[in-house]
Amino acid sequence: EEWMVEKALMVRTGLGARQIESYRQGAWIEGVHFKRVSPSGESTLRGTTWYNYPEINKFIR
């Protein structure tokens, strides 16, 4: 699984929702560690946020 939603990321990493938000707003790079995608497939600020687990795992190492 490369891309996953927040709940799956929480299960895989043990991070809480606030921790994920903090990383997203600070250290993680949009387009690398996470992306927002609307149902139409376009990038957007209001779409579902998807997280790239392999890239996040590399960051944590």
Score class of each variant (00 low, 15 high):
M4G: 02
T13N: 01
W28T: 00
Q25V: 10
W50P: 00
N52A: 02
G41P: 10
M10R: 07
T44K: 11
I20Q: 00
A17T: 08
R36F: 15
W50H: 06
L15R: 00
E2K: 07
E42P: 08
N57H: 12
M4D: 01
I56P: 01
E30K: 04
T49M: 14
A8S: 08
L45I: 12
R18K: 14
W28I: 00
E2V: 13
L9F: 05
Y23D: 02
E6A: 10
I56M: 00
V11C: 14
G41S: 10
G31M: 04
R36G: 06
V5N: 15
Y51C: 02
I56H: 00
I60K: 03
E6Y: 06
T13E: 02
T44C: 09
R18L: 12
M4C: 06
P39N: 13
S40G: 12
G26M: 10
I60Y: 04
T49Y: 15
S40I: 12
R61D: 10
T49S: 04
I20C: 02
E42Y: 06
I60V: 06
E1G: 10
E55M: 07
Q25T: 12
A8N: 09
N57V: 15
R61T: 13
I60E: 03
S38R: 08
I20H: 01
I29E: 07
M4F: 05
P39Y: 10
M4R: 01
E1Q: 09
L45V: 12
R24P: 01
K35S: 07
R12Y: 08
G31S: 04
T49R: 04
R18T: 11
G31Q: 04
M4W: 03
T44P: 12
A17D: 05
H33V: 01
I56Y: 01
E55D: 03
G41D: 11
E6T: 05
E1I: 08
N52W: 03
Y53F: 12
G14F: 03
Y23F: 10
Y51V: 00
F59L: 07
K58W: 06
G14Q: 05
V37C: 12
L9A: 02
G31L: 04
N57A: 15
E42S: 10
Q25C: 09
W28Q: 00
L9E: 00
I20W: 02
F59P: 01
R61M: 15
E30L: 06
E1C: 11
R46Y: 13
N52V: 02
P54A: 11
Y51P: 00
H33R: 00
E2D: 11
E21T: 06
H33M: 03
Y51Q: 00
W50G: 01
Y23N: 04
E1L: 07
V32A: 03
K7M: 09
S40Y: 09
R12I: 11
E1S: 10
E55K: 05
I60L: 15
M4H: 02
G26N: 14
N57M: 15
V11R: 12
E21I: 07
G14T: 03
G14D: 04
M4A: 02
E42I: 07
K7G: 10
S22Q: 14
K58Y: 06
G47M: 11
H33L: 02
L15K: 01
I60C: 07
E2R: 06
L15V: 03
T44Q: 11
R24N: 03
R61L: 14
Q25Y: 07
Y51F: 05
P54W: 09
R24M: 15
P39R: 09
I60G: 03
E2A: 07
P54S: 11
T49W: 15
A17P: 12
Q19Y: 04
N52Y: 06
Y23W: 08
W28K: 00
T49A: 05
E30H: 05
T49H: 10
N52C: 05
A17H: 12
T48V: 14
F34E: 01
V11I: 14
F59A: 05
A8R: 07
L45E: 14
S22L: 14
G31D: 06
E42N: 11
K35A: 06
G16S: 15
S22I: 14
V37D: 12
E2Q: 08
K35C: 09
V11E: 15
Y51K: 00
K35I: 13
Q25R: 11
V32K: 08
S22E: 15
T48M: 10
E2I: 14
G47P: 13
W50A: 04
F59N: 03
R46V: 14
L45N: 13
